[in-house]
Every structure is written in C-alpha cells, then in structure tokens.
Design a protein around this nucleic acid. Structure first.
Lengths: 341, 341
DNA sequence: TCGAGAATTGGGAGCGCTCCCAAAAATGAT
DNA sequence: ATCATTTTTGGGAGCGCTCCCAATTCTCGA
C-alpha cells in the first residue's frame, strides 16, 4: 500500500518495469494476457504512479494553470470568475489535466507567483484572465517566458498572443439595435472602464449600432462606470436629467444600480426608461422588473480556453490562435419589448 | 534562457551543483560572497529550478489540493465557495504553496479525480469541503489513503478526521436569542437540509435557544429548506398561516425567498414579521429591507484550513485537529432591533 | 605559527519514471 | 520446416534535483 514503485509492481507481476509502464500508459504493444495480469496487480496493490517522476522523465506535468489577476476583489461579487473557473475545471477533468489556480490580488502576490508559474516541471501551460490595462506587464512577461499560454479576454496588445474572447462588439451592437428596433431613439450607455477592453468594445458596439442607424451620437449620453452597482447608480443620476429613452448598460450589476436610481427618482421601467444589461447574472431575472440582458457563454468560454491551450501545448504556440465566441440576447421586461407585442 | 539546470548555473558560477542548490533553497552554510555571486548568475540567466525534479528528490511537492465536491452547482449561486477559495489561495501564496483546484460535480468526476489526488508526488495534502452526507465516501477513501487532509465543515463522522468548522450551534443560538431578547416569542425556523451538518447544527442551535429560555418548541414552526431562494419562498408560504412573529433562516438566500413570500402576502418587515438570515452575503445589505444576519469569517476559514493542513503535513496527521471558528451577528433592519431603540 | 574545530564546498547515490534500442518471441508466407 | 517480418519484452540511460558524507578551507586560541 505504501510507496510502491513501477519496479515493485513489475516484480510482483513477473514482468519488467517497462511493461508495467506501458500498461499504465496504455501503450499498444503489450499482449492482452500480460496487460490483464499487470492491471490486476495494480488494482490489488492500489498502485498510483508517481507524478513527479513521470513529469521529470516525460517533461510533461499534465497540469495547467489559471491565473486570475487583480480580479480577486471581483471574485465574489461577480459570478463571472466562478463560472469561468468551473468551465476550466470541467475541461481539465475531461482531458485528464490537473488545474492549478492562482489568485493575484496585488504586486506582492504577482512577484510571489510568477517564479512559481515559470518554474519548469510544474505547468504545461496557463490561462490568464485579462482585459485590464494593468495586465499587460503580466502578459509581456509570459511572452518572454515562451511557455504556452492563452489569454481569456482580449488583451490590449494581442500580437503574438493567443486569446479567446466573447464578441463584445457584436453583442453590444445587437443589444442597442434591439432598442432601436423597439423605437427608442435617445439611447444612453453606461460603459465599463475605458482601461478595459470589455469596456471599450461594448462602447464601440453601442456606437456602431447608432451609426448604422444614422442616429446622432451624443457624448453626454455616454457615462463611464466601473462595473459596480454604485457606479451604475451614480451614472444614472448623471443621465436622468438628460431624459434618455433607453439605457444600454455594460453589465447587469451596473444595470441594477442604474434602475434603482431611476426608480428612486420616480421613473417607471420600462414605461419611462428602458434598460438592457450585460452578463445575464441570476440577479437579472430576479430583479423587480426582470432585466433584458446579453448572456455570455462563460462556462463554455472556460472550456474553450482549455482547448485552445491544449492545442498550443500539443502543436506549438505559433501561430497565435484567436477565438471569438457568440452571445445571446435574453429578452425580458426592462427593454419594453413585451409591452409592444 | 531555455532549459537551464542547476549544473549549468554551477558551471557558470564556478561552483558545484550542491552549492547552487543551497543558494536556491536558502540553506545557511554558504559564504556570503559565493551566495551573492550565484544569485547574480541565477538572476541574469533567469533560472528557475525544475519543480518535478525537486519534488522527486525531496518527496515534497509544495502543492496542496482543494476539493469541492458536489458543490459545483452551488459554486456560482453561493459566494461561499469563491470566498473559501480565495482564503485558501491567499494562504497558499503566503506559505509558498501552489493550489490545485478540484471541482467534482458527479460520480464520474469523482472516479476521474481520485486517482489523481492519490498519486504520490502531486499533492502534499488536501482540503475537502464537506458537510453533506454524500461526502462520507470521499472522506472514507481519503482516510484509507493516509494522505494528510483536512475537512472544511464538520463531517458526519469525525473520528480520526481533522476538520475545521464555524460554530454553527452557537451562531444559530445567538441569533435566536437575539430575537427572544427583542421580545419575539413565536419564532419559526427555515432550516438547511437535514442531510447536512450545517442544516442540523443550525437547527440545533435554534432549539437550544428556545429551550434555554423555556419557550415551547412547536415542530410545525420548523420547516426544512435546501439553501435555495425557491425553498425559502415555499417554506415561508407554509409558515405564514401559522403567524410566526419572527423567522430564523439558515441562509441569506432562503431568507430573501422567505421575505419575498411574506411581502407578496402583504406582510411588512419587520413590523409584522422579523427575519434573521445566515451568511451575510452582499445581497443581505442590499435587500429592500436590509437583512440582519450571521456573518461567517469565510476567507479566514480558508486561511485556517490551509494552516491546519500544513500542520498535518509538517507534524503528522495524529492526533486529528479540530478547529471551530466564531461568527458575528450583523444587526440590520429585518430583526426590528432598530425600531425598538 | 600550528592545529583543532567549525564553516564551507564538492560529488556520489538516489528519487521513480519514460524513452530508446536491442533482444526475444510470435507470426506467416513460402 | 524455414526465414523474414512483425510484435512483444527487457534493461540502460537519463530527467534535474536533494541529501548525505567526505574533502577542503577558514578561524582563532595557545
């Protein structure tokens, strides 16, 4: 039971170390009789091959990392990270990999974690959640280290970098076009931070939709938020005097805040002001008026990230892979679509 | 840059492999001059020792696991798991360990993951989130495997098992006593599942409080929930005809559901019915009437779990360690305390 | 200045696996 | 039955580190 080695199993089974290794690793060239016997011995002894020895000999750890930088503070408030983690973990199970999780909350953590990530023999590759401007240094260091990695979320500079992203542009554009189709003309937006690619892309999508329909772009109707409920509330307070007919909000959390502000000011949703959010949090369907929003396939996103990473590991990191996933508009009450039917 | 070994560094620095090893591992017996020089070479070459080789030679992987069983479905809805994960990750950083995360959602996952966990040379120890009856088999297998592990949450059978838990009994008792102190007599409870130790312990705490104050226990006022919003709503609908003056709810999510049921039925909170929840989710302070609740130190809980595990790893798994952490009652509006001041 | 003791350094022997190549056994066409 | 192939098996040589012990160098008191 304790500390068996390949050699021990070999002795017990009356074969060589190599043969046991072949059986353990499912190599083809073993006669059925021998394989069956060895498998029995392994079963009864409860043998588990030593991961470190295997890694050392094969130069493959069968472990990948998931790095969530700076995001730690969001790790609880925003279900995005747990969902992503779930997708990644699920794919790891499926492909027989172990998942190492790195939560980085500050520079110290970063200094502490980096050498660990770069250490050979620990990680075959790593997934880095990103999209914030501050993550660029991390990505730069990873590029230098020539270890396979994929960025989840479009990074600011994506040359030579494999990444996977949701089509924020198309999604935002679609949401705003939905509002336009419903007859709203004076459409505002509460954006994410301009220091994040999601923030930028969703705003760009909003602008694209307006332009495509020849609607005037009023800069006053564009207010920057930071993905918190409070920032949504504040942004809406700024917007209210301008009497927007509808608001496209770059996240559900901000939408919740914005709607609260509107309701506190005595407006009715969607009769007076319509809203569309982004994320489709569980909260979205539970809010006082169920929120129309854009659903991201976050779990599949995590799965896909693993698949791209494994591709990089197996087939080399060149050329960089870029994957963009589609979203889905979930129409509920706040956009007013149901009223008009 | 590529694939340096200790020996390479040794050659470049003009010392022996052993000396470089001592420098890397901060062993005392190296002269300052040599240490400084070797450190420089390591710095300029960007050398990172190979983790697998180190693990193989030292029989220590400096990696610990976190196993979240069956809980995967809760991983998003309930911020408990992200918080726990954060605490564990934080402590791992602090103590120089790598965190391997295992999310188990079904029996297949379990079969897939177990051999991986048991493999020598991968994990020095593991933290297992538990408290559900179904987790017993996992715990049993871990005991057999004689690998250091600590259970987060009191397991059903805790002999020979190290665990760490929140003092649910005391917490629930304290919450109910708070209600009693406020003058409520007809106090109901919506419990967690009876197949979970949290469910059992919090109910027991409720009973203890009633008994301590010589209040009659009415079995009809005890309704079992399953920690979902929906179950809270349903439980409250059952409770409403019995006109409880106050309800102690074993989780915030259920409290939200229960309060929604009460409000839908036209009751005012806390004027008609008072509520106390458990968890102190962000939601709790944001609900229409801010929720009085019990705050668990979840992040510190994760940290402590790591500390206990490291203790087991360093000093042996005997005797089993048992740690119980205190909670804090957060008084807001729903208990009516503010009204009476 | 010398030598005992302490501090520092070097090298061998693994840790437990994989991978390669050569040896042995099995297969099949003639 | 024979020989050329193919399939199966065994063992050596690492993978890159740590740990131990022996060799070397340094320190400092007499």
């Amino acid at each position: 039971m304790t500390d068996l080695t390949l050699e021990d199993i070999a002795k017990q089974a009356g074969v060589s170390r190599s043969t046991v290794s072949r059986v353990v690793n499912n190599h083809p060239n073993v006669s059925d009789k021998v394989r069956k016997h060895v498998l029995e011995v392994i079963q009864t002894t409860g043998f588990h091959p030593n991961a470190a020895a295997r890694t050392l000999a094969s130069q493959r750890s069968w472990t990948i990392g998931l790095l969530l930088p700076h995001s730690v503070s969001f790790f609880f408030t925003d279900p995005y990270y747990p969902h992503l983690t779930k997708g990644v973990a699920q794919a790891c199970n499926q492909y027989g990999y172990t998942l190492a999780l790195f939560l980085v909350s500050n520079k110290d953590d970063e200094e502490q974690i980096f050498p660990r990530i770069l250490r050979r023999g620990l990680l075959d590759g790593i997934i880095i959640q990103s999209g914030h401007y501050g993550d660029q240094t991390i990505i730069g260091r990873m590029v230098d280290a020539k270890k396979p990695f994929v960025v989840a979320g479009r990074p600011f500079r994506s040359d030579n970098v494999s990444f996977i992203d949701v089509d924020n542009l198309k999604a935002a554009c679609g949401a705003v076009e939905h509002l336009i189709r419903l007859g709203y003309r004076r459409i505002a937006t509460i954006t994410g931070p301009n220091a994040s690619t999601v923030g930028i892309d969703r705003k760009e999508g909003y602008l694209n939709a307006l332009r495509a329909h020849h609607l005037e772009v009023d800069p006053a109707l564009i207010v920057e938020g930071d993905f918190t409920e409070a920032s949504g509330y504040a942004a809406m307070q700024a917007l209210l005097p301008l009497r927007p007919a509808a608001v496209f909000t770059a996240s559900d959390i901000m939408a919740i805040g914005a709607m609260r502000a509107a309701q506190d000011a005595g407006y009715h949703i969607p009769a007076d002001i319509a809203f569309i959010g982004f994320d489709d949090l569980p909260l979205a369907s539970l809010s006082s008026v169920p929120l129309t929003t854009v659903r991201q396939p976050v779990v599949q996103f995590g799965v896909k990230a693993v698949e791209v990473l494994l591709d990089l590991i197996e087939n080399g990191i060149e050329p960089p892979r870029h994957v963009v996933m589609d979203t889905e508009l979930i129409v509920r009450e706040t956009c007013g679509a149901k009223l008009r039917v």
